[in-house]
Design a protein around this nucleic acid. Structure first.
Length: 569
DNA sequence: GCCGTTTTCGGCCCGACTGTTTTCAGTCG
């Protein structure tokens, strides 16, 4: 049982308790526990072995016992009992927008609806309309909701959501009815996947502003329209919410709607204990408003240092903001180079020189060119001899460049037995050796761990690229023991890559934080296959910031001569 | 069910929108 599996059990328990109309605070406890487990960096099995379950936030006696039961038996008695009353299909039904616990129970009890299919059939047959509390409009909304689920499968990659959000922002800015425009929600926190886009604006004429919003090009349907809030769905399936805020309380609203929900709850709770109150209109002492204009004002009023949006996940940031010990997050301008990219020598589109020109424009001092090794044939991987010729070419380009250097590197494949795809004598010639897995993704965790450890023991290896191999919304990460790999990486001076490639973002935020805590260095690389893709660095920086990384944790903040010293080991 | 620098008992965030109602419940973020 992995962290995610256990979190899911507690979420299902919460769902069923909600359907059964149980005490809402008890329900929240299970939800909090699930969220807490999901955001753990460490494997919960090893926490259990250390006897430290109770030290996890939101885990008390009762839930700790259930975790133990799940680890030992892969089942939880209470969960099984609850599922006897409410089939799992009823929980699926709750994923439909507009179907909450009350309606789910209603359609189950009265119509026997226990699956998404049955819900669709009941709605199509007009059976929902007749139920108390539901009507024709609800039925239509539910039908639409079911369709929407299958189209979008929920979430969008950050880069995709950002692209749409920027288009809408630019349209809104053209209108006279709209003043300031800001993003909020998970988009502003730069989560790797975004469920919907939140946009906040000021307006002297809210009615006109809402009219502009719902008529923007690309809007497929209007889900809700009010004086302060409207929601639309775009043709691509993405939901966009617009909220109109007062100028005087914009900061309070921005803070509130940026979330996360868990962060807000903890911050409000803390404010409350200090005799204050915060809501989306301001911070209050009694009935007197003491701050509202900017986020900075709100933080100051409740006695906190400013918390960057990427940190607002209730992972300890509020406590550190209170004591003034927040990390100073890395910024893109701290980066002096990019370690991971391909050229025409393997599967890239540009030459080393073209890559260098773009990198110089970006203000970098160096790049490493790291083409594929021969085993990755599909990507035009090359052998030692071809790569040496390619290095000679890089030498020629380097002579032309002033104050900039191209490091000679390779992305060498780790074969299934853990050996590397190129000879040691060649790897010694390289300035930078990246290693990565490109095949045999399905081997069991212990075998995969051994495979990676063996590769790390090769003294020439500097960086482990896209460590988990996951592709967002496409491919699950392959299994290995992250804690052991981090230990071996630290002891052998191997850096872990944070791939800025927008489909990868690998390591993710939680693993970045774990690496930082364990003293493992991170190298942010774009894995670019064209000069233009070097711009993808921003997505890596966002994930690094979500992972609490500071300048000192990231290798490519160092000048080239220090990098060469470290990589020569 | 969890939690504790006012508490081991008594709290636990709260406002907007919708649809179905005749003053509000359900859902959402």
């Amino acid at each position: 049982m992995q962290n995610q599996d256990i979190a899911q059990v507690f979420n299902e328990i919460a769902d069923i308790l909600e359907i059964q109309n149980e005490d809402r605070f008890r329900i929240r406890s299970y939800r909090n526990a699930a969220a807490s487990i999901e955001s753990l960096a460490e494997d919960i099995n090893s926490i259990y072995k250390k006897g430290a379950l109770r030290q996890i936030p939101a885990i008390g006696k009762s839930i700790a016992e259930k975790i133990e039961e799940l680890i030992k038996t892969a089942k939880c008695g209470m969960h099984q009992e609850l599922l006897k009353n409410v089939p799992r299909g009823v929980l699926d039904v709750m994923r439909v927008p507009g179907m909450g616990p009350k309606h789910a129970m209603l359609v189950y009890k009265s119509l026997g609806v226990d699956s998404m299919n049955r819900l669709r059939r009941a709605a199509e047959a007009g059976k929902l309309e007749a139920l108390p509390g539901l009507g024709k409009k609800s039925e239509q909304k539910i039908l639409k909701g079911i369709k929407g689920l299958s189209i979008t499968e929920g979430k969008f990659k950050l880069i995709t959501a950002y692209k749409y959000a920027c288009q809408i922002r630019d349209e809104l800015k053209k209108s006279n009815a709209i003043g300031r425009v800001e993003f909020a929600g998970s988009l502003r926190r730069k989560k790797e996947l975004v469920g919907d886009v939140d946009i906040l604006v000021t307006s002297d004429n809210p009615k006109a502003a809402m009219k502009v919003f719902v008529k923007i090009d690309g809007v497929k349907e209007v889900l809700a329209k009010g004086d302060t809030k409207s929601s639309v769905r775009l043709n691509c399936g993405l939901q966009v919410d617009l909220r109109i805020l007062d100028k005087d309380s914009f900061g309070a609203g921005l803070y509130y709607f940026t979330g996360s929900k868990e962060h807000n709850v903890t911050a409000r709770d803390m404010a409350k204990k200090a005799g204050l109150k915060i809501n989306e209109y301001g911070a209050y002492k009694g009935s007197r408003k003491i701050a509202s204009k900017t986020e900075e004002d709100i933080f100051k009023a409740i006695g906190l240092k400013y918390i960057e949006p990427e940190l607002r996940e209730n992972r300890g940031e509020i406590q550190l903001a209170a004591s003034g010990n927040l990390p100073i997050l890395i910024r893109q301008k701290d980066l002096r180079g990019d370690f991971h990219m391909h050229t025409k020598t393997s599967d890239g589109k540009n030459t080393p020189e073209e890559m260098a020109v773009k990198a110089i424009q970006m203000g970098y001092e160096y790049i490493a060119i790291t083409d594929h090794s021969k085993a990755v044939r599909i990507a035009g991987g090359k052998d030692e001899k071809a790569l040496l010729a390619h290095f000679k070419n890089i030498d020629r380009v380097n002579k032309k460049l002033k104050g900039f250097v191209i490091l000679k590197g390779v992305e060498v494949d780790i074969k299934s037995d853990g050996s590397l795809d190129l000879e040691d004598w060649f790897l010694k010639e390289c300035d930078v050796v990246i290693t990565a897995i490109h095949s045999g993704f399905t081997m069991p965790s212990d075998k995969m761990t051994k495979r990676i450890v063996k590769a790390f023991k090769n003294k020439n290896v500097d960086i482990f690229a896209h460590p988990t191999g996951r592709l967002l919304k496409e491919r699950q990460p392959y299994a290995f023991d992250m804690e052991e790999i981090f230990n071996v990486a630290r002891d052998n001076n191997v850096a872990m890559e944070l791939s800025a490639y927008p489909d990868r973002l690998d390591l993710n935020d939680i693993h970045c934080r774990m690496a930082k805590d364990m003293g493992v260095k991170i190298a942010v690389g774009t894995d670019s296959h064209s000069a233009k893709q070097l711009d993808n660095m921003q997505w890596g920086v966002y994930t690094a910031r979500r992972g609490w990384l500071e300048k000192k944790n990231v290798l490519n903040t160092l000048p080239a001569r220090e990098i060469l010293k470290i990589f020569s080991k």
